[in-house]
């Protein structure tokens, strides 16, 4: 029983990271019609900035969010500006952002080289900072990550479903012409979504920098699970993202604990395939239903 509960805890905490990383990808895809593969490059850059500031300059890794969040927001805003100026369609955004991901990888490789990087333990107190409840242990940094995921998903849900800005965003996605006629500034709202995406990707990136070894190629590790979370959760559906991220992380965690760990991602992706077979739109509805124009 103890093993089941520990696996449950581990899965929930991992779900927090998955949700934080996936939220921005889902929002930009569902609301801005940008399939942003550069998202993974932004996360990688945030990871390396966290590594650099902690290892070379001695900052507490969590405090590096002061730098990574503005960087994430700036990059996301810059991309949104570019996409809106060039007027790329959705396929165009996929191609262009994949190119940007490669550029970011190459730039990171040039500055930090291809060598593996990891914040040494002496610079990373969060690796050993653990909350113990009875026989159960929870890394504090992952608890904070889970809190951040809940806060970001909760705020995004409130913004989209309960605020005037949210109504305007949904209206501008559903019917841009009508929304413009009512004086809704879709461009400005697009920047708001991009900024939220930037915050979430920066937090996820810093978490990855704190928890994992980094290499320029490591950005792609996160692509399958992020796509699975986004497709299961429904585009731009923050609650769907949170639930599907948790479900996939739990599936992985129980597989690692009780079966063959090498099957963990396969099980998660198997769940995706089975769900899509029976419910092609995913487990949750997109926040905005848009027929392809």
């Amino acid at each position: 029983m103890q093993q089941w509960i520990q696996a449950l805890i581990t899965g929930l905490l991992l779900g927090g990271l998955y949700a934080t990383l996936s939220l921005g990808f889902s929002l930009t895809w569902g609301l801005l019609r940008t399939i942003n593969f550069a998202h993974f490059g932004f996360a990688l850059l945030a990871s390396y900035v966290t590594y650099e500031l902690s290892t070379v300059h001695g900052f507490d890794p969590l405090l590096t969010l002061v730098a990574t969040v503005p960087i994430g927001v700036a990059l996301s805003l810059g991309l949104q500006w570019f996409v809106s100026k060039v007027k790329l369609d959705m396929f165009g955004t996929l191609v262009a952002t994949f190119g940007l991901l490669l550029v970011l990888e190459a730039a990171i490789s040039r500055y930090w080289l291809q060598d593996l990087r990891r914040i040494p333990t002496e610079n990373n107190p969060w690796l050993s900072n653990v909350l113990s409840v009875g026989p159960y242990t929870m890394p504090v940094v992952q608890i904070l990550g889970l809190v951040a995921a809940v806060a970001l998903c909760g705020f995004s849900w409130w913004l989209l479903q309960r605020s005037r800005a949210g109504y305007a965003i949904r209206a501008s996605v559903e019917n841009p012409t009508m929304a413009r006629a009512f004086g809704i500034d879709a461009t400005r709202l697009g920047y708001l979504i991009a900024a939220i995406s930037g915050v979430s990707v920066a937090i996820a990136g810093s978490m990855i920098g704190i928890l994992y070894a980094l290499s320029p190629a490591s950005a792609l590790i996160w692509v399958p699970v992020t796509l699975a979370v986004v497709l299961l959760g429904g585009l731009a559906n923050p609650v769907g993202v949170a639930i599907s991220a948790t479900a996939l992380a739990l599936a992985e965690s129980f597989t690692r604990q009780f079966a063959d760990p090498s099957l963990a991602q396969l099980v998660a992706l198997g769940i995706l395939v089975i769900v899509l077979l029976f419910k092609p739109s995913g487990l949750f509805r997109p926040t905005v239903e848009v027929s392809e124009r």
Partner: peptide, 9 residues
């Protein structure tokens, strides 16, 4: 591999 907790357990 992205989650070492269960293997550690």
């Amino acid at each position: 591999n992205t989650d070492w907790g269960p293997i550690a357990q």
